[in-house]
Simulated scan of single mutants.
Amino acid sequence: MSTKDEYVEKMKQRLDKWSAEMDVLEAKAHKSQKEAKVKYQEQLSTLHAMRQDGEKRLETLKAATEDSWEQLKAETENVWDAFKDSVHAFKAHFK
C-alpha cells in the first residue's frame, strides 16, 4: 500500500503527464480543419476542467490527515480513470 507522500508524488507525476498530453492535443487542434477544430476545442475544454479537478484533489490530498487520505485516494483514482478514458477517446476520435 502506498504512503500518502508516495501517492502525492505519483499524482504530481500524473498531472505533469496530463499537461504534456494536452499540449500535444492542443497542437493538433491548431493544425486541424475548421469544423474539426471546434470539436477539438470543446473536448480540450473538458480535459482542462478535468485536469483542474485533479490539481484540486492533489491539494486536498496534501492537506488530508492520515485517517482521511485513503478515501480521498479512492476518489482521486476515479477522477484519474475518467480523465484517462477521455484522453484515449479524444485521441482515437481525432487520429
Rank of each mutant, 00 (worst) to 15 (best):
A64G: 06
E70A: 10
V87I: 14
D81Y: 08
T60H: 09
S86L: 10
V79I: 11
W80G: 06
V87F: 10
E70R: 10
W69C: 00
T76E: 06
A74C: 03
V87K: 12
Q71W: 00
T76C: 05
H88R: 13
L61R: 00
W80L: 11
A63F: 01
F83E: 05
T76Y: 04
K84R: 13
T76W: 02
D85P: 13
D67I: 03
A82M: 14
A64E: 03
K73M: 00
E66R: 04
A82W: 06
A63P: 02
A64D: 04
A89K: 15
E75L: 10
F90C: 10
S86H: 13
F90A: 06
S86E: 13
K84A: 11
Q71K: 11
Q71T: 08
Q71I: 02
K73P: 00
E75R: 07
H88F: 13
F83S: 06
T76I: 02
W69L: 00
V87D: 05
V79S: 15
E75K: 10
H88I: 13
N78G: 08
S68C: 03
A63W: 01
A64Q: 04
S68I: 07
T60C: 02
A64T: 07
A82S: 14
W80V: 12
K84V: 08
F83T: 11
L72D: 05
T65Q: 02
Q71R: 05
E75H: 08
W80E: 09
A82R: 14
W80K: 12
A64P: 07
E75Q: 14
D67W: 02
V87H: 07
Q71D: 07
L72G: 08
L72I: 06
E77D: 13
N78H: 07
T60Q: 15
T60M: 07
L61V: 00
H88S: 15
Q71S: 12
L72W: 02
E66C: 02
E70G: 09
T76A: 10
V79E: 09
S86V: 06
F90K: 05
S86I: 05
L61I: 01
K84D: 11
K84T: 14
S86A: 15
S68G: 10
D81H: 14
N78Q: 12
A89V: 11
Q71Y: 02
T60A: 13
A82F: 07
E75F: 03
V79R: 10
A74N: 09
H88Q: 15
E77W: 02
A64C: 07
K62N: 04
S86Q: 14
E70W: 05
H88W: 08
D81A: 13
E66V: 04
F83K: 09
T65H: 01
F90R: 07
W80D: 11
E75S: 12
A82V: 09
W80C: 07
D85F: 12
K73E: 01
A89D: 14
T76S: 12
W69Y: 09
F83M: 09
D85S: 14
K62A: 04
F90N: 06
